[in-house]
Design a protein around this nucleic acid. Structure first.
Length: 197
DNA sequence: CATGGGATTGACT
DNA sequence: GTCAATCCCATGC
């Protein structure tokens, strides 16, 4: 599989976030098309790297083109692509995918990860990757993949397979944060059903 | 060493 | 709309 090289990520993080819409993520037999992203940069307080270099943010400040995976709310792993020059703390959060391959494995993983007492009805394809915590469950992306190469794997990010026009990609404020809420650093594919709610 | 806060999700009123 | 689950790590004593 063709993968994006380090130069792709070694650019302003907001540009990379926009350009990742329509690209693909694959982990083993499971894959999806990126339909929603958010940019984070150490110059603004919503970014983990805002606090400076700590054990947690070491990957963020490292080389571009690697995975930054961290635990959110004690429950979910969230998957990011590290961007910009080494020494700059910046990354793109992958917020949603349109499932491509391995949907039955994704469904099995999502069901296995469901909380106790959950789920009275079956998971639809739309329930698999339509959020940052869901897609890491579906693709089996865990904390141990923090720091791994997105060009060499185990998690691979591939380029767009078609041209995307300006009007197909929308921008707006990021979700779920309490600081720097005004920055329009969230991007999504217009009309895509798998974009998070 | 103790404490508190999340880049979320899913159930429930 | 509200709320709890749950854990890594930053901060402060």
């Amino acid at each position: 599989m063709a993968t994006l090289d380090r130069a792709f990520y070694e650019r302003p993080v907001v540009e990379v976030a926009r350009d990742l819409i329509g690209c693909s993520v694959r982990h083993g037999p499971t894959s999806g098309l990126i339909v929603e992203t958010e940019a984070y940069h150490d110059s603004e307080p919503a970014c983990h790297a805002f606090a400076g270099l700590t054990p947690r943010t070491e990957t963020l400040f490292g080389a571009a083109g690697r995975a930054y995976v961290y635990r959110s709310y004690g429950i979910h792993a969230l998957f990011n692509a590290v961007c910009e020059a080494e020494g700059v703390g910046a990354a793109v959060l992958i917020r949603a995918l349109a499932p491509l391959r391995g949907t039955e494995l994704m469904r099995a993983r999502r069901e296995a990860a469901a909380p106790r007492g959950a789920r009275l009805r079956a998971l639809t394809d739309r329930d698999l990757c339509s959020g940052p915590g869901k897609l890491t469950q579906a693709l089996g992306i865990e904390l141990r993949l923090n720091g791994s190469s997105l060009a060499r794997g185990p998690v691979l990010v591939g380029p767009r397979t078609r041209r995307w026009t300006e009007t197909e990609i929308l921008a707006g404020p990021r979700i779920g944060i309490t600081k720097a809420v005004e920055l329009p650093w969230r991007f999504w594919a217009a009309g895509e059903r798998n974009v998070s709610r």
